[in-house]
């Protein structure tokens, strides 16, 4: 499948997916650079990988999941101290729903 040309609209769409605000200058630069980077990857397209399984984990000898046991977590105050804003023992975040908060 051929990748589409990267346009400003594509850059804006991807930035929205990534929750990343970009200035108009950054959008221009990103458009140019992504085009160049993706063009350099074109050789991959020609490579036949039918029947080849993907490698999601390079080394298969890991220990897997640990037993699901109840353990102490971090003290709440210590975690909240690192937050930009907190109130009533929780992270304070902008309102996410309409109506009564």
């Amino acid at each position: 499948m051929a990748a589409p040309t990267i346009t400003i609209d594509v850059v804006r769409h991807v930035a929205k997916l990534a929750a990343l605000s970009l200035s108009p200058t950054e959008e221009e630069t990103m458009c140019r650079e992504l085009r160049a980077i993706l063009a350099s990857m074109a050789a991959l397209e020609a490579l036949d990988v039918s029947g080849v399984p993907p490698t999601f984990h390079a080394v298969a000898m890991h220990g897997g999941l640990r037993p699901d046991e109840v353990r102490d977590s971090f003290p709440r105050a210590e975690l909240l101290a690192a937050a930009p804003a907190h109130e009533a023992g929780g992270f304070a975040v902008p309102k996410v729903m309409d109506g009564e908060g």
């Binding site: 499948m1 990748a3 991959l44 490579l47 990988v49 080849v52 993907p54 490698t55 390079a58």
Partner: peptide
């Protein structure tokens, strides 16, 4: 684009 990029790259990684 997942198949064309990420999945393809993980297959070439196998090679």
């Amino acid at each position: 684009y997942y198949d064309a990029f990420y999945l393809k790259a993980q297959k070439v990684r196998t090679l």
